[in-house]
């Protein structure tokens, strides 16, 4: 049992360094997509919601689990669409930017 927690802790530590390294040299230009992209990535919370609701056995658990799934799903799709829209604009501006 406890071994899993230790494994998770090691993973967490290594991930923290990875996150720091991957992000540390991001230009200001990408601060918004980066933030909104990481906003999308923590939408992984949806899988936790699915697990919580999928193994719920009584009504209170189901109701709260349902809330978790709704919110998690909203986080994932909303976070993705927002990021996509922002990045799409950068793409367009790269190509010399519209008509005068």
């Amino acid at each position: 049992m406890a071994a899993d927690l230790w494994t998770a802790l090691f993973i967490a530590i290594l991930t923290a360094f990875t996150g720091y390294e991957v992000i540390s040299r991001v230009p200001t230009l990408l601060h918004t997509p980066l933030m909104s992209g990481s906003n999308f990535i923590h939408g992984i919370v949806l899988v936790g919601g699915i697990v919580a609701l999928g193994f719920a056995t009584n009504t209170p658990e189901r109701v709260v689990g349902f809330i978790a799934v709704v919110m998690g799903a909203m986080n994932v799709t909303g976070g993705y669409v927002v990021t996509e829209r922002i990045l799409a604009m950068f793409d367009r501006s790269k190509k010399g930017g519209g008509k005068p």
Binding site: I11, T15, G19, V47
Partner: peptide, 23 residues
């Protein structure tokens, strides 16, 4: 969640969550 019935979901959340936390 890593000790729960679906430990993989827990690990995925640890990784994605910490990644976002650090960044």
């Amino acid at each position: 969640l890593v000790n729960g019935p679906l430990g993989d979901a827990g690990y995925a959340m640890v990784i994605a969550g910490v990644l976002v936390g650090a960044a």
